[in-house]
Simulated assay, not measured.
Amino acid sequence: MKKLLLSSAVALTLPAMASAHFLLEYTTDTMIDRPGDVPVKLIFWHPMENSHVMNLERPQEFYMIHNGDKTDLMDSLEPVQFTGGQNTGAAFKGHVPVKRSGDYVLVTVPTPYYEEAEDIYIQQIAKAFLNRNQLPTDWMNPVGLPTEIVPLNKPYNIIAGSTFTGQVLADGQPVAGAEIEIEYMAAEPDMNSASSSMPVVSAMPGGAIVAISDMNGYFTFGVPRAGYWGFAALGSGPVTEHEGKELSQDAVIWIRAWDME
């Protein structure tokens, strides 16, 4: 993890970086009108480029937080195959029981993934958000994960053209100088099939979009377009080794932006 102390968060592009790995907790919508089981897919993928799909092992944990209460969702998971633009990989489908009004914070703690090309393990601890009846309850609260990004804007109700601010934490403390990769879900999973849609935008010519957290762990990004946006704080977690190799324990958050109509 890079420790670069900056006075403010700066968005920039690193030309040499490869496309970003992102763990998705994908639902077709974030605002839920009716009570019921909301389908979700867990996919480890490069959604901006619609490129390589990594094989996802069964997670260590998959649960939701609603009104401060934790509900285990591991029993809802079933293995599936998912096909991106380059290959097919192992993924999971499950469901989230959305009944009462309020926020539903989805949390996935995956099994570390071995990245052979870099000879390291990657563990992307991911959060995503659903809401029913526009009643905010949990979105602004830390979950208490080894590392996480806490949103300062309501994450399922971002206005395209505005900004999103998050704070990177490790063991509840701010992480200064964290490198945050930013990903647009240009291609989206089809919930009724095993494949992705076609990308609606091209990959950035300079490579991955990156921001750096300031001395208090904060970063801000101007959200230019409606849709799903992901943020991954690389190596921000306290665990740095797995099975004798380097581990990048990353904090991931997904937000949803909307056009004003």
Rank of each mutant, 00 (worst) to 15 (best):
A232C: 11
P110I: 10
P112F: 13
G68K: 06
W139F: 06
M215V: 12
M64W: 11
M74Q: 08
F219W: 14
V201Y: 13
A176W: 07
H66F: 09
G206I: 08
K99Y: 12
P97D: 12
N216H: 14
E179W: 04
G230D: 08
A208L: 07
E148L: 03
E57T: 02
K70H: 07
D250K: 00
F231N: 01
A176I: 02
R34L: 14
V200G: 01
H46M: 13
F231C: 02
L24E: 15
Q123E: 15
I149C: 01
D33F: 10
I122P: 00
A208W: 05
H66G: 02
M54D: 11
K93I: 11
N67K: 14
M198I: 12
D138E: 10
I32Q: 07
M191W: 09
Q249L: 06
A91H: 04
I149D: 05
N157F: 13
A126W: 10
D33E: 15
V109Q: 09
G84I: 06
A232I: 11
H66R: 07
Q81W: 13
A9R: 10
W139R: 03
M191S: 08
M140F: 15
N157W: 14
E188C: 03
S195I: 08
K127A: 03
Q81M: 13
D171C: 04
S193F: 12
P174S: 13
G217S: 05
S197F: 11
F62G: 00
T163G: 01
P146L: 09
A194I: 09
Q123A: 09
G84H: 07
F92Q: 01
Y121G: 00
W229M: 01
A233W: 07
F219S: 00
F129G: 01
Y228P: 00
P110W: 13
N87A: 09
E57I: 02
K41S: 09
I43P: 01
D250I: 02
E246C: 02
Y63E: 05
L23G: 02
G207D: 12
W45Y: 09
A226T: 05
E179N: 02
G235N: 05
L152S: 07
E183C: 03
